[in-house]
Design a binder for these strands. Structure first.
Length: 575
RNA sequence: GCGCGCGUAGCUCAGUGGAUAGAGUGUCUCACUCCGAAUGAGAAGGCCGCGGGUUCGAUCCCCGCCGCGCGCACCA
């Protein structure tokens, strides 16, 4: 694919500037306003070296460059040299490339031969899969797809929260108030009920907390009764989680959660002791991190049982030894920033220099609106919105809209799932992941404007246009020489430029662990396509013009589908 | 109190050390005898939290405030 920045940098290069072509390349900008050209080179930085006003330098450079096929015009405006691309030439280059690569367009192989682990979703067993969990699940899945797209070998791990004192609580609660029949009917809601009750009762009778810790100690020691209960909770929960994962189209390579590491911890506790890092404090074993401005990392509690950090240390080393990863990415809420800093510091102190390849990818908090108040979701308080309910409601609403619009010849059951669930995923991936947000039914069920359904609609619309072309014309798109000069309009050109940038957008999104970069670009493409669609008639009588425009429609459809795929969203042909 | 993050249009959010700071939504208009109106066009809406500093140039980088959120050893 043609690289304009490269061409421009070589044209601009002059020894007296004191800049390498790479440095020049980095200075090249894409102006916000199309009237300023497609690429622009600001000359402010050269003023000192050349001892000339930036405006003069720009004029000199613009005057020097001429006769390059890639550009229609090069001119200077104030201190900028503005480059105008030869539109027909450019459209041909981009559309041919998309046509040739098809579903591979946007992908690359920069990560070839290297392994990346993405840990995401990681819900707590025996607790509801609520709207807060959508973040790690959907962002993590998109990051997996992005890394896969740029060529890495990706291992997806669902680090289930299937261990810890909370299971002591659950076991105690079940023994005191539980019943098998209730549990079988609606496992998670029932378990949540026990859990909530435990916390209510524990306020009155604090000895319950001790009882719970004791139960967890017995679980960790492998006592049969506690282990059997724990296994039951885990199986019932996983079955429910899988229902949601199926709806979202998400799978994992490993469900090795916290419990998986329970028998791997003694080695590290010994190692910490041998390395002189472990100190006893109030009966517990800790690593002092005061030097690093952090509170201590607790490795074992005074009753000898393990903690989160301990299990994460074991998990990290196990993964390094098992997979020899290039990067291990943890998609976990920003609330746990301190935990990850502590944990990385402990690994560093243990001499594991690869801890630098462990990357915490944080995201903001989801809260609930409660009248005028905004509050956190709390499993303990029982104030949660279930993700499954959100997905189902979105699907129902989509089906209603489709019926309203008299969708005929369309499988409403199938498509309403693709669109409804796509809407929820898209919404989740729209903003920078670090932003907090308040869950709102109105927002998640809005399908107008910058939304998933809008992008999918654009895809369906493009598909519809292509259905109106004859088989012979569709075949001609692949074989015939196309006259790209029919794609020189502003709206066609804006669209072509956005298609062109997709591979670099995908790479940037992967490097920044930021799927919203793709989401935003996708919206831009959809907007540009719709503008093109309104501005110009595609199925015109002139065969050459029709073929050129159809080729652009086909390329747009391909790119939209590819990008939706990267986000884990389907691209329906009709809706 | 300390640490981390956030603060841009009424609301939800993009954005970059550079040209006149952009979308969506909401409000008010306009466009379906025409390839899909879940669409497009237009109007209106801004001390880019406040004050310093660095720079030829700061919404962006640095420092200090203010506001909000999260976190700060026997939860995860």
């Amino acid at each position: 694919m043609i690289d304009f920045k490269d061409i421009i940098a070589k044209e601009i290069y002059d020894e007296a500037m004191g800049l390498s072509t790479d440095e020049i390349r980095d200075l090249i900008e894409i102006p916000g306003d199309e009237k300023m050209g497609d690429y622009a080179f600001p000359c402010f930085r050269l003023a000192k070296a050349l001892r000339k006003a930036p405006q003069m330098i720009a004029a000199d450079i613009a005057g020097r460059i001429s006769g390059n096929d890639a550009f229609e015009n090069v001119e200077n405006v104030n201190a900028y040299v503005n480059f105008f691309i030869n539109r027909a030439f450019f459209a041909g280059q981009v559309i041919d490339e998309v046509e040739e690569k098809g579903s591979e367009y946007g992908r690359s192989d920069v990560g070839a031969g290297r392994k990346v682990i993405v840990e995401y979703s990681s819900p707590n067993i025996a607790k509801p899969f609520h709207i807060g969990h959508i973040r790690s699940t959907v962002i993590g899945n998109a990051i997996y797809k992005l890394y896969d797209a740029v060529g890495f070998d990706v291992i997806r791990i669902n680090h289930l929260g299937d261990y810890g004192t909370q299971f002591g609580k659950m076991i105690v609660a079940f023994r005191k108030w539980g019943s098998e029949e209730e549990l079988a009917k609606d496992p998670i809601k029932t378990l949540l009920g026990y859990y909530t009750k435990f916390h209510q009762e524990a306020k009155k009778d604090p000895s319950l907390e001790d009882e719970a810790r004791e139960a967890f100690v017995r679980l960790e020691a492998g006592e049969p009764e506690e282990t059997a209960l724990w296994k039951k909770f885990r199986e019932l929960s996983l079955a429910e989680f899988n229902r949601v994962y199926d709806m979202l189209g998400i799978t994992f390579d490993s469900y090795a959660g916290e419990s998986f590491y329970s028998d791997k911890m003694p080695r590290f506790i010994k190692e910490l002791k041998d390395k002189g890092l472990l100190i006893e404090s109030q009966g517990a074993q800790i690593v002092d991190l005061e030097k690093y401005g952090m509170s201590p990392a607790m490795i074992t509690k005074s009753d000898g049982s393990s903690l989160y950090v301990t299990r994460d240390i074991a998990a990290a080393v196990y993964r390094k030894e098992t997979y020899d990863f290039y990067k291990c990415i943890y998609v976990v809420a920003s609330q746990q920033n301190l935990h990850f800093r502590q944990w990385k510091q402990v690994l560093e102190l243990m001499g594991y220099t690869w801890q630098k390849d462990c990357i915490h990818v944080p995201f903001g908090l989801v809260s609930l609106s409660d009248g005028d108040d905004i509050k956190m979701m709390s499993t303990r308080e029982g104030t949660v919105v279930f993700l499954e309910d959100v997905l189902n409601t979105a699907v129902e609403k989509t089906a209603d809209i489709m019926k309203e619009k008299n969708a005929q010849g369309i499988d409403i059951d199938e498509v309403s799932k693709e669109v409804g669930i796509g809407a929820v995923i898209f919404q989740e991936l729209s903003n920078n992941r670090i932003k907090d947000y308040t869950f709102s039914w109105d927002k998640v069920l809005n399908f107008d404007g910058e939304t998933g359904p809008y992008v999918q609609y654009t895809h369906a619309r493009a598909s519809s246009v292509l259905r109106n072309a004859s088989e012979e014309e569709m075949a001609a798109l692949r074989s015939a020489d196309i006259d790209w000069s029919y794609l020189e309009s502003d709206s066609a050109y804006t669209l072509v430029k956005l298609l062109y940038r997709v591979p670099e957008i995908v790479l940037e999104a992967a490097e920044k662990y930021e799927p919203s970069i793709v989401t935003r670009h996708l919206v831009d493409i959809a907007q540009a396509f719709n503008k093109f669609y309104h501005d110009e008639h595609i199925l015109v009588d002139n065969r050459d013009e029709k073929l050129a425009k159809l080729a652009l429609v086909l390329a747009s459809k391909t790119v939209i589908a590819n990008c939706l795929g990267l986000l884990g969203i389907k691209a329906p042909e009709r809706m």
